[in-house]
């Protein structure tokens, strides 16, 4: 069997419970320590699993269960305090879709910038440019040379989704973005996701919609208060989750 593309081993990350963990200089000088409670909690602990190439995995669990945190660690934008996560292929993260966009530049420039930040060359963007714009829809197409900040938030997210899903990365991480956009766009998103899956890409999906999870995923991981409590076929994992909440 081929090596798993993602393997997590004893993954754990610890956060401060207090929102104000920022240090203030005054406290550092006068009290030689911070007065904020040093109260911490583990957003994730002892999480181990492996994902093979082409698998579609759905993350299930209540708010605060650690789903997004796990996704961020796989994306490499959080560093675990314990254990490790190895990701052996490139990742296209659909997290903070509009993060790379600059309000002052035109949508056109932004497409080149964001795709470039995710590793595409200018020629590759040239090739895909029409696709990206087409997918984002007519409104975006009409406003290509408008400053990006004049776009409605829906249009911004659509463009973001469009850019990130045209990347060639073999692993795709999706965090609740399917919930945005109007119905027409949602249908398009579904079609594109199915297309990506049929190309044999590996998918990691965070969603609260059982329908979405069943539709795209064959395997489910159930996170409860930072612990991985179930790992199995998505139907069973969803049932486990709903039993817990009934």
């Amino acid at each position: 069997m081929a090596k798993p593309v993602i393997s997590a081993e004893g993954l754990g990350i610890e956060f401060y419970r207090s929102r104000r963990r920022k240090l203030s200089l005054r406290e550092m000088i006068f009290q030689r320590r911070t007065t904020h409670p040093r109260d911490t909690f583990w957003a994730l602990r002892d999480v181990s699993f492996e994902v093979a190439k082409g698998e579609a995995v759905g993350l299930v669990g209540a708010n605060g269960g650690g789903k997004s945190t796990l996704l961020k660690m796989i994306a490499g934008v959080l560093i675990p305090d314990e254990g490790s996560v190895k990701v052996r292929q490139g990742v296209a993260p659909l997290i903070e879709l509009t993060g790379g966009f600059l309000g002052d530049l035109s949508a056109r420039d932004n497409i080149y910038l964001t795709a470039g930040l995710h590793g595409l060359t200018k020629e590759q963007v040239d090739e895909r440019f029409d696709d990206i714009v087409e997918f984002a829809g007519q409104q975006v197409k009409d406003g290509l040379d408008m400053p990006f900040r004049h776009f409605s938030s829906g249009m911004q997210v659509r463009l973001g989704f469009s850019v990130v899903t045209t990347l060639d990365e073999p692993i795709i991480l999706v965090d609740e973005v399917l919930a945005v956009g109007d119905m027409a766009f949602k249908a398009k998103c579904y079609a594109r996701m199915e297309g990506l899956l049929s190309e044999g890409r590996t998918l990691f999906l965070v969603s609260h919609s059982a329908g979405d999870l069943k539709r795209f995923c064959d395997r489910g991981l159930y996170l409860r208060q930072g612990q991985l409590v179930d790992d199995g076929p998505v139907e069973e994992v969803l049932k486990h989750y709903s039993d817990d909440n009934s």
Binding site: P93, G99, L117
Partner: peptide, 9 residues
């Protein structure tokens, strides 16, 4: 911050 959070550079 937004870019740091969303890209793996």
């Amino acid at each position: 911050a937004k870019l740091v959070r969303s890209t793996r550079l």
